[in-house]
Amino acid sequence: MDFNYKKEQDFSIVTLYDSRLDASQVNDFKEYFTDLIEKGERHLILDLTQIQFIDSSGLGAVVAIKKHLMSCDEPSTMSLAAPQAAVNDLLDLTCMNKLFSIFPSVEDALT
């Protein structure tokens, strides 16, 4: 899986460059974000524009990153930006809005 990293204000904006976030990507995904958190990043925005499908393992990985952030002492945020229709349905069905701030675009997540 390819990632694009951009820092704006306090936010680390990470764009995921793949059409799927599934079991085969989960290790890459976790490694990348664990690394960011260990480097001290506390405010993450995941740009999901490219992702068309998240499977059960993928969803577990996203939540695991959030739990990692929550286990750090400092205040932290994790937002999901620009989820596509199928991903949005999954987030909605599993009440992920109770765990993440979900925004229609990265710009919205920044404001």
């Binding site: 989960v26 393992s57 577990g60 990985a61 939540v63 695991a64 990153i65 739990k67 286990s71």
Partner: peptide, 10 residues
């Protein structure tokens, strides 16, 4: 059975 940073099974 909460997911943790090291165990993402649910």
């Amino acid at each position: 059975f909460q997911i943790t940073a090291s165990n993402s099974m649910y």
